[in-house]
């Protein structure tokens, strides 16, 4: 659920656990899809947390976790320059949206 954004401040105490973005492959043959984010001190913990948080209902067969800080996002101000050139190239759009989240509940 979390697109990357920088926390505005860090309250005192122990350093907050970094934010990780979680990607889940729902079934074999589908690409990993962004499902949300979580906090963990390191990658191994993040993977365990992701498994428990995002695949409690058998939503996935494979998980990626990636430090949110490692993501470089395009700036919304350049949105048109960045994306509009692709707008007329429909043939480049594969089955992009249709990974129904939580297919297992259906």
């Amino acid at each position: 659920m979390s697109e990357y954004s920088e926390p505005t401040s860090q309250p005192g105490g122990a350093p907050p656990a970094p934010l990780w973005e979680v990607f889940v492959r729902a079934r074999r043959g589908l690409a990993h899809t962004h499902v949300g984010s979580l906090h963990a001190a390191d990658a191994e913990l993040a993977l365990h947390n992701a498994r428990d948080l995002y695949t409690r209902r058998q939503e996935g067969v494979s998980i990626w976790v990636l430090p949110a800080a490692a993501i470089t996002a395009s700036s919304p101000d350049e949105k048109d320059a960045f994306f509009d050139p692709a707008a007329d190239k429909v043939y480049r759009h594969p089955t992009f949206y249709e990974v129904p989240e939580g297919a297992a509940h259906l």
Partner: peptide
Amino acid sequence: PEMEEDIALAN
């Protein structure tokens, strides 16, 4: 100790 760990222990 962490909300994430609550979920793990419950699992």
